[in-house]
Amino acid sequence: MNRPKHTEFTFPTHIDDYPTGPQYKAGYLPETNAGWRTFRPVVDHDACVYCLRCYLLCPDGTIIKDSGQIKIDMDYCKGCGVCAHECPKDAIEMVKEQL
């Protein structure tokens, strides 16, 4: 799995449900970060030249490059806007989230 996926967490009900000491599975994500966004990146695939600058610089690693066309994991995008700001072709636009 390239990116850990959002996983439901069962809250411990017995003391033995806790790990022995502070240790847990690497890459375990019971929460998403989508709720942080006020703007969402929208990609214009015609303008995108697949240079991958956005992929390189996303602080959250949410840009996916494996299919020849960039995709964004909207569960974990925080809407910082680095991708749009850094895109040399202005192919990404930050659009206000509708609540």
Partner: peptide, 22 residues
Amino acid sequence: EEPKNLGFSSKPDDNTEFKYQQ
């Protein structure tokens, strides 16, 4: 074989349980 994150922080919801365990 089994990658882990160690030495994490716990919120007030869980901290007492870790101390109980100790």
